[in-house]
Amino acid sequence: MDLTSISPVLLLASLMVAATPILLAALGELVVERAGVLNLGVEGMMITGAIAGFATAVATGSALLGFVGAAAGGAALSLLFAVLVLWLRSNQVATGLALTLFGLGLASLAGQPYNGVRAPPMPELDIPLLSGIPVLGPILFRHDPVVYLALALVGGVWWFLHRARAGLVLRAVGENHDAAHALGYKVLRLRLLAIAFGGACAGLGGAYLSLVRVPQWTEGITAGAGWIALAIVVFASWRPLRLLLGAWLFGGISVLQLNLQAANAPIPVEVLSMTPYLVTILVLVLISSGRGRARLAAPGSLGQPFHASR
């Protein structure tokens, strides 16, 4: 065993990349849930974004335009969900699961012409000077633009939810839609926007897989990442900064367990491969058993259909 061969700097750098798809998808879902809507179709929107982004990138020759296409694809699929749950008041849990099924089928049908095609390369964003800083350089400043986009979005969502007036309204809608309605806020319109934002973010997360990490289109490319994203939202107790920690924790443990394997650590592999899930549970238990339990509660109207009774 040679644990010294695990470099913490490189580990942290990989963690930022490994966490990005989950982070993006989870961030979108966080906003959706803060608006009081539970969309379990993240996996379906992610994979739709993965193929929409891939197809756009191949058609335009630009990976960055691909991400735009991915966001549009994810958002378009999420609008289907929005119509069903907001106006037709269908059950959110079941509709979300159906959306996953639908999205997986749609993506693999749409992806058939793209088997074995190579995606255009992603421009590197080597920030000059900063990337040369020892330790911090490799961790923070040698990634592709989407990594920074994800971080910026976390900051943006935090600012929106906690500092912007519209964010306050969104939270009010999520906490108690009847009260928000009584105050004259457009509950359904806000929720529609939140759902579309969630779909776009999930699409970006999926495209990060098909355009940066793999980068090819293969069926089932998301391999369950959408479910992890859902779990991370709960882990974060619906708060953006904690979401970042959750995604890094999960991504970090996933990367660390593989590093430990490569370093021949004397821990059974089957135990190592369970650790990301077990550690997530453990940390959540520690958080929830500590102080501030009351602040862990889910948005009050989460999962409930809204009908304006006049």
């Binding site: 897989l209 391999a223 990367v255 590093n259 490569a262």
Partner: peptide
């Protein structure tokens, strides 16, 4: 050797490759 415990999981395979390269 790294055991991925899956036949197909792009994200995990990428992480495994990176872990190896880093070492």
């Amino acid at each position: 050797v790294i055991w991925a415990y899956t036949w197909f999981d792009p994200a995990k395979e990428a992480d495994a490759a990176k872990a190896m390269i880093e070492q």
